[in-house]
Every structure is written in C-alpha cells, then in structure tokens.
C-alpha cells in the first residue's frame, strides 16, 4: 500500500500534538490550588496585576489556568457565560463545578481531536463545599482529560517539582496562613526557564496573584487578596514558619 505524501498515523498525530501542548504549558509559571480549613486557596506566580490566571466563575466556583492567555481567557469567558446561564435558568444552588468541568473536558477534547493545533492550556476548576469534605477540585488537561484531585494540585511550569513539595508540606485542615506558606514555598521550587537555577527567588505581593474561595462568606465566596492585605498575610506566613 502506498502512503500519501505527508501521511502521519493517528498515533503519531496524537503524540505530536500532546508533545506540542505539553511544551507550551511547561514554558510558563506554575499555579497552585490548595485547600485550607475554611476553603480553597489559589496562588499563581504572575507579575501582571491585570492579566489574571485566577478568576471567579460563580458563587462557590473559581477557575485557575496556565498556558496561552488567549486560549484560557476564551474558556474562562465561556465558563462564566455557561454558569450564569444555568443560574438564571434554574437557581443559584443548581450551578455546579461538575457541570463546568464536564463542559470544559468535552470542549478541550473536541479541540484536541479536530484542530491541527491543540489548546496549550491546563485548567483547574474548584468548588468550595459546606464542609471541607465537600470541596471539589478538578484538573483538566489540553486533551480533555479530567482528574478529581484531593487537597492540592499544581499546574504549569515545573509542576512535578511543585507537586512534590506540596505533597510533603500540605496538611488537611491547615489554617490560611499555613496553606499560603506551603503554596509559596512550592512555587519557589519551580524555576521558570531563563532564570538562574538555584538562584534565591523571593515571591512577594508584587509577583503573586492570590485568590480564595472562603466558605464563611455570604453568597459570592470568591475573594481576591491583593496589595496590603496580601503583604500582611505573607508577613504572617513568615512569622508562623
């Protein structure tokens, strides 16, 4: 049988696309999503104060992403539209992270199979429950794979190293300051390409983006921690260590 010019087997195509997407995602900086006693904390290394990697989606649901900004921004907007539509059509209580994670998984899966270029993104969708047992964290990869995570997850950059550090230091039911310390410590482990390895990197309020889903808040439970509030919280983590 003669092969047409430029033929690549499906296996080869999937392998190539995966490798391409993986490389793109590993180039960026990491994001950590970690549970604490009263909710879920999102910490991203992000020098921009306006181009966010962390976002509110609905009352109890938030979103974190790494990779190509235009691609995950597109997914973030779609997520807010989908959840607001459902909340308007049914009721605010009927909006769940599982529905959002499924929609993302199917969309990413379809884009991966149908398009020449897959999305170079990795996403976390998290929902804070009434108690820590009901907290849900979903990790979605570029090909539409979905995983249900417990306690913590790291995406983007050198996520393996970050995960190792998180595994070692994360404790269930830890207070907020401890969770932030564990997350920042883990992010410091991952050195983005271009910066000297082993160099002492200090993450401060200027290059961190922090948000949280706080189950003690009324209705919209997502809150960004910025500026002085973040500086104070970071100072607390320094003294508690």
């Amino acid at each position: 049988m003669t092969m047409p010019f430029g033929y690549a087997s499906p296996e080869q195509q999937v392998r190539d696309k995966s490798e391409y997407a993986r490389k793109g995602i590993a180039r960026g900086r990491s994001v950590v999503v970690i549970t604490y006693a009263d909710g879920i904390l999102f910490v991203a290394e992000n020098p921009s104060a306006t181009l966010h990697k962390i976002s509110e989606i609905y009352d109890r649901i938030a979103f974190a992403a790494v990779g190509k900004y235009n691609e995950f921004e597109n997914l973030r907007t779609a997520g807010i539209r989908l959840m607001d539509s459902r909340g308007y059509m049914y009721d605010r209580r009927d909006v769940t992270s599982r529905a959002l994670a499924n929609a993302y998984a199917q969309t990413l899966g379809a884009i991966f199979t149908e398009s020449v270029k897959p999305y170079e993104v990795e996403i976390v969708v998290a929902e804070v429950g009434r108690s820590s047992d009901d907290d849900q964290i979903y990790r979605l990869t570029f090909d539409g794979s979905i995983a249900d995570e417990r306690g913590f997850v790291a995406i983007g950059g050198a996520s393996d190293q970050v995960t190792t550090s998180l595994k070692e230091h994360h404790r269930d039911g830890q207070p907020l300051a401890d969770a932030l310390r564990v997350a920042v410590q883990a992010l410091t482990v991952s050195v983005p390409p271009g910066l000297p390895q082993n160099g002492e990197r200090v993450l401060t309020e200027a290059n961190l983006e922090v948000g949280m889903l706080d189950r003690s808040r009324a209705r919209r439970q997502f809150k960004r921690i910025t500026g002085n509030a973040l500086a104070e919280l970071l100072a607390q983590t320094a003294t508690s260590s």
């Binding site: 597109n74 907007t77 539509s85 308007y88 199917q106 969309t107």
Partner: peptide, 26 residues
C-alpha cells in the same frame, strides 16, 4: 458548534453583557 463541545456562541469573544449573550444563546 460540533458535537460534544460548548456551542460556538459561548466561545465567541466580544460581549460582556449577559443580556446580549442570552439574546443569542437562549
């Protein structure tokens, strides 16, 4: 859009208005 993914109207950049979005999607 294609089967098994979010409809194109969700993925189209542009409006930040929920009313405008709803007038297209539902």
């Amino acid at each position: 859009g294609g089967a098994g993914r979010l409809p194109a109207v969700f993925m189209t950049p542009g409006t930040s208005s929920f009313t405008d979005f709803l007038s297209q999607s539902a």
